[in-house]
């Protein structure tokens, strides 16, 4: 097999995988919405308003929200449009879904990316500190903190952060992504960053424990390995052992883990954005879900699933590129 056909085959395989994943994710999200007890008319129009409407008006509204159309038909018509590149019109925002998602994703991107980066870097460092000496003081502190964080819901951390840093210390705003009462074109980048600090911090904290505990585990394994023993026997200092052998051997699994933990950051952002009233993708997902906005929810589901899939795929590719055992092995095979 030549290199080129190998590459094509790989790309083809990944594309099929992604298609299957997106299909299943959208079906699942749609099924959940269909069985949800939320009645779009009751929720979005309200009982009183409905009572004062004529039957014709109610019929029109029913048609707008798609009530009464068989679920399979509704899904298929959405899917057919989606494949053609049309994500539909959001029923709540009354704008194209693509535009809504683009705007919300732009808002969330800063939050998601900084939280992903900070939790990765911080968790990695904590893991090294803890794993350097199993059972030491640093290990006990890091393990304890990580387990507590892992057992704490993200929204609760968000609320605690709000109470301490926004309400009591008044260091940060209590919510939203821009200051209240300022025209949209007068909002500066500094304003946006200032508003993103607290939700990003809360989101980072929730992502730390997994990477810290995994890095710790891997670091312990490395520090108790034969090759570290031999490095010590050859007079290499502890610092040299950690820098030369430790980092080299734990960086790859840590990077892989962090890339595949994108899903957790996105999942956490749904809760965190709700707590901080941060108008991002997560909040839009909650709004769409509670308001039975099928096109928007399916759009968000598919886009986030694709982001998660790309994260995992990058991890896979990275492994092949960076790890010589896989890289050279693949060359030979």
């Amino acid at each position: 097999m030549t290199q080129k056909t190998g590459k094509l085959k790989f790309i083809g395989k990944q594309a099929v995988r992604m298609a299957v994943l997106l299909f299943l994710a959208s079906v699942f999200a749609f099924a959940l919405l269909t069985v949800s007890p939320v009645d779009p008319l009751q929720t979005n129009v309200g009982q009183t308003a409905l009572g004062s409407m004529s039957p014709e008006q109610i019929e029109k509204l029913k048609a707008y929200w798609g009530a009464g159309v068989p679920p399979v038909k509704r899904y298929l018509s959405w899917a057919a449009a989606f494949i053609r590149g049309d994500m539909g019109i959001s029923l709540l925002y009354r704008r194209p879904v693509a535009a809504v998602i683009a705007e919300k994703l732009a808002n969330s991107a800063l939050l998601l990316f900084s939280a992903w980066l900070i939790s990765g870097a911080l968790g990695f460092l904590m893991g090294i500190l803890a794993g350097k000496r199993r059972g030491g003081l640093a290990d006990r502190i890091v393990t304890g903190v990580s387990l507590v964080i892992a057992g704490t819901p993200a929204f609760w951390i968000g609320m605690v952060f709000l109470m301490i840093f926004a309400v009591q210390l008044k260091l940060f705003p209590i919510g939203l992504s821009v200051p209240i009462g300022v025209a949209a074109d007068e909002v500066t980048l500094a304003d946006r960053l200032y508003h993103a600090v607290l939700p990003a911090a809360a989101l980072s904290v929730t992502g730390i424990s997994q990477i810290a505990l995994h890095t710790r585990e891997k670091m312990i394994e490395v520090m108790e390995s034969d090759y570290v023993l031999f490095a010590r026997a050859r007079g290499e200092s502890e610092t040299a052992v950690i820098l030369r052998h430790g980092l080299r051997n734990i960086l790859l699994p840590a990077m892989t883990l962090q890339l595949s933990s994108v899903s957790e950051i996105i999942g956490g952002s749904v809760l965190i954005e709700q707590v901080f009233s941060y108008p991002g993708l997560g909040q839009a997902a909650v709004t769409a879900g509670l308001g039975a906005d099928v096109p928007l929810l399916l759009g968000i589901t598919v886009i986030t699933a694709a982001i998660v899939f790309l994260g995992n795929m990058t991890a896979n590719i990275l492994y092949g590129v960076v790890d010589p055992r896989i890289r050279e092995g693949a060359m030979r095979g």
Partner: peptide, 23 residues
Amino acid sequence: AKRLRGREIVLVPQSVSYLDPLM
């Protein structure tokens, strides 16, 4: 021992696991 190991006192270990697999 810490001062001398790797200089005057050296170890020849038993297997490939004593070499860093990624170096």
